[in-house]
Structure formats: structure tokens, C-alpha cells
Design a binder for these strands. Structure first.
Length: 145
DNA sequence: GCCAACGTTGGC
DNA sequence: GCCAACGTTGGC
């Protein structure tokens, strides 16, 4: 069971919106590397929701309730004929009970030195190694599973 | 295939 | 609001 970190702009869609909706299609990711990461996800995987802008922290935990699939709104193919834009469906699991998983705290913690959130600017979807997953959940006050 | 120009993201 | 970091586009 893998965990991914998904960025969202709070003006666009927040964890609170996911709680309100109960389920959503996680779309809008256009970056090739981010889409590649998303394609590696599987139904049942966990997703840490990270809000950019004025928040810059993990605000909640969600779960994939579908496999990745082609975005019906953007049925583009790559030159190799593969699906270019991938989406999946999410359901909320738990809201963060602590605001400790901030970007500042992540940057200050040497355990996250190689984490793509820090090393790869603008990447909006990335896998979270198990050790970092545990650390982030502890910092955000999220259930460990 | 190279690379300059341009657009976007997202922290500050 | 600024701009660094990056991806994409298009002329050649």
C-alpha cells in the first residue's frame, strides 16, 4: 500500500472541499512527471493532501477509490500513443489534527532532504517513501493507516 | 536536434 | 508583486 502526496491550491480545491463532496475526481495535473507518478498509483493507496499558497502544509488524508484512468476531459495521447492526462477518484479519510506538517518543518528536517517536495519545484504529485509517510502523519496528526 | 522565448508554478 | 525553477513550444 503506497502513499502519494498531492498538491492543491487552496483557492482551487481544499481538503475541506473533499470532505464536503465525499468523493472527487483528482484532475488538473498536467506535468508529465506528476502524471507518471499518478499512473503508478493503485486503488486503495493513500494520498496526503498538501495545500500550497498561504497554507503550505499537509491538511488531510485521502484514499484512492479508483485505479488511475484517462481524464475524460482531456483524452490526449502522447507521441508514443499512451494516455497523457491521468486522474483518479479520492475519498476523504481524516483531517489533519495538527498543523505540524508544514513546508518549513519539512525543509528543516534532514529526513526529508531527498524528498521530491523539497528537491523538485512545482511537482504536484509524488510518491511518499514509507518512513517519510509515517513522519508526515505524525507531524499532521493523522492516523497511521 | 538545439535552444531561445515564453508560460506556469509556487515560495517568498 | 517578484522571480527562480522548470516545462513546453517553435523557429531554424
Amino acid at each position: 500500500m503506497a502513499t502519494f502526496l498531492l498538491k492543491t491550491e487552496p483557492d482551487d480545491y481544499r481538503y475541506a472541499d473533499l470532505q464536503r463532496d465525499g468523493r472527487t475526481v483528482w484532475d488538473g495535473v498536467a506535468n508529465a512527471t506528476a502524471c507518471l507518478h499518478m499512473r503508478a498509483a493503485k486503488a486503495g493507496d493513500a494520498a496526503l493532501i498538501y495545500e500550497t499558497g498561504g497554507h503550505k502544509r499537509v491538511t488531510g488524508l485521502a484514499r484512492l477509490v479508483s485505479e488511475p484512468y484517462a481524464d475524460p476531459e482531456r483524452p490526449d495521447l502522447t507521441k508514443a500513443g499512451e494516455i497523457k492526462f491521468v486522474v483518479f477518484d479520492l475519498e476523504p479519510v481524516a483531517e489533519a489534527t495538527k498543523d505540524g506538517a508544514t513546508l518549513a518543518a519539512i525543509k528543516a528536517d534532514p529526513r526529508f532532504g531527498g524528498f521530491e517536495l523539497v528537491t523538485q519545484s512545482r511537482l504536484s504529485a509524488m510518491p511518499v517513501p514509507a518512513t517519510l509517510d509515517r513522519a508526515l502523519r505524525a507531524m499532521a496528526g493523522l492516523p497511521s493507516r
